[in-house]
Write a protein that binds this DNA or RNA. Structure first.
Length: 526
DNA sequence: AATCAGGTTGGAAAC
DNA sequence: AGTTTCCAACCTGAT
């Protein structure tokens, strides 16, 4: 009788066995009740319209690896082809009494969660949610700051300075046959191939970063073994345009939850201990803390991924310009460094953090004056390591809409890349039309004499686009526009403040608070 | 209230 | 070559 009932762990952005408390909760509960354990993943067929090919491939690879790892402990992954609307049916079909999942903060997932929580309540299904995607529980961090979002990195660091980080857990014990699903060997719901989602492997570029927990852990161990390198790491001194990545590229594994940020934290602490090492914000640990910072900000701010209705975001009158946006996204702005970066992004799904700075500044306040929201959407498509909070937060940073305010510091699409790649080898790799250009002109091919252009087999305006804007001129105009936008925003703030004080002392902290979902039950132990 | 220090990573020119 | 200064001047958080 009890055999028919099931316990579900709903995998989302936690595609791993290690440091997965919610999964362990599900396993223990299934064992205690002698019920069927069903680890599930909802694979939305509509995803192919929302997510770029490379990221989709990374996801599929991660799911396959997850399934393989689950089989090692006598269970498997059940892939459900459908979206969240399938869940009520599954609850019926499998007689679900207990469900576990991790807390995610992407606005869309949060909305889904509300619906599911409601359904579980109605059907008397016990739900366990665990904060395990970040090192710190952002609700606690916000509480420590009186419900206010910390607006600087240093402030964030001070808020977590005395927080003990729990150990990362392991799940290695095989589950008993009592909990094994009766349809364990069914292949009905296997992920067959990418064709299921409308792609064939042939459409795709070479796979530089294969998805999955196994790969993520391998990569982590590879880099943590280089102790000297880890301890000397300083982000601003790494190169955005080296041919091979100058940083770890652990980010796609962390964003998909193939790798636990908490495990990364402890490994870093271990490597640093007893050694002279760099510190936040520039150290590797500092990079992880940036992620925590943006997660906290994202969790505590309504409409964090939008400009309007976002309390931390300065309102700037960006202009719609489809032509500019397309030229930028497709890597044909006529600025070779910008185009090389955008093409690497599209091909490989990963670009260096400083390369992201370059192109983000260029699209927004630097040159094209297009909204950061548009750029964020393009990054969402292409980045393997796309992450809701980090993407919105960094775009606001670079567009000087929040967190960073020195808008008069503008990246030059000509000068910036030269610092680390004078020869322009990076450009020659990703913008092959220009590969025969002399290094002298590689960052500014329009300056090459016609004879040089012809000799290099690439005439500007014919074989490679003319630059769409004149950076030297336009970036100065844009600084003035930023100046005006800041002034207006300041006046509005002052007026609001004044009106607020006229009425009643208003509690900004309370107004900015957003509903948080954290599971807290004294009856349920880990 | 007013002031001050500090802020992950700018560029160009001057030493 | 590597550091300093100017450019024109932002914001937050602390006091």
């Amino acid at each position: 009788m009890t055999k028919a009932a099931s316990v579900i762990h709903w995998f989302r952005l936690d595609l791993r066995l290690h440091d997965n408390l919610a999964l362990r909760n599900a396993i223990n509960e299934a064992e205690n009740r002698k019920q069927t354990l069903r680890p599930i993943y909802l694979l939305d067929p509509d995803l192919k319209n929302k997510v770029g090919k490379n990221r989709l491939r990374f996801l599929i690879q991660s799911l396959r690896d997850l399934d393989a790892n689950l089989r090692k402990i006598n269970t498997r992954l059940f892939i459900i082809k459908g979206n969240v609307e399938c869940l009520p049916q599954l609850f019926e079909k499998w007689q679900v009494k207990f469900i576990t999942l991790q807390v995610d903060i992407d606005a869309e997932l949060v909305q889904q969660d509300e619906v599911i929580e409601q359904i579980c309540e109605e059907k008397d299904i016990f739900m366990v949610k665990r904060v395990q995607h970040t090192v710190y529980d952002f609700n606690t961090v916000l509480k420590n700051n009186n419900g206010n979002v910390p607006l600087t990195y240093q402030k964030f660091l001070s808020l977590v300075a005395n927080t003990q980080v729990k150990d990362s857990i392991e799940i290695t014990k095989e589950i008993s046959n009592d909990c094994k699903a009766p349809d364990f060997d069914s292949t009905e719901n296997d992920i067959t191939i990418l064709e299921d989602l409308g792609f064939s492997e042939a459409d795709l570029n070479e796979c530089k970063y294969p998805g999955g927990e196994t790969e993520g852990l391998k990569r982590l161990n590879l880099y943590m073994a280089k102790k000297q390198w880890v301890c000397n790491f300083e982000k601003p001194n790494t190169s955005p345009n080296s041919i091979e990545p100058s940083t770890t590229v652990l980010s796609p594994y962390i964003s998909h939850g193939c790798l636990s940020s908490k495990l990364f934290y402890h490994k870093l602490k271990q490597v640093e201990s007893g050694m002279k090492h760099s510190s936040p914000p520039v150290s590797l640990l500092g990079q992880l803390m940036w992620r925590e910072f943006y997660y906290t900000a994202g969790a505590g701010t309504k409409n964090f991924d939008k400009m309007v209705g976002n309390s931390v975001c300065t309102q700037i009158p960006w202009k719609k310009n489809e032509e500019y946006l397309k030229a930028w996204a497709e890597g044909r702005t006529g600025y070779p460094f910008v185009d090389a970066i955008m093409r690497q992004l599209k091909q490989e799904g990963w670009i260096h953090h400083l390369a992201r700075h370059m192109v983000a500044c260029f699209l927004t306040r630097g040159d094209l004056w297009v909204s950061w929201e548009e750029g964020a959407k393009v990054f969402e498509d292409y980045l393997l390591d796309y992450d809701w909070s980090l993407n919105a937060g960094n775009w606001m940073w670079l567009s000087a809409s929040a967190f960073f305010y020195k808008y008069y510091r503008v990246y030059s699409p000509v000068a910036f890349g030269k610092k680390t790649d004078k020869e322009g080898l990076y450009i020659k790799k990703y913008v092959p039309e220009l590969k025969k250009y002399p290094s002298e002109y590689i960052y500014e091919p329009w300056k090459a004499p016609k004879s040089v252009q012809t000799a290099a087999g690439c005439v500007i305006g014919e074989n490679y686009p003319k630059r769409i804007v004149d950076h030297d001129k336009v970036h100065k105009d844009n600084i003035q526009r930023m100046n005006a936008a800041y002034k207006l925003s300041k006046e509005k703030k002052a007026l609001k403040h004044y009106l607020c004080r006229l009425k009643r002392p208003c509690n900004v902290a309370k107004r900015n608070q957003r509903r948080h979902y954290t599971f807290q039950s004294k009856a349920f132990s880990e």
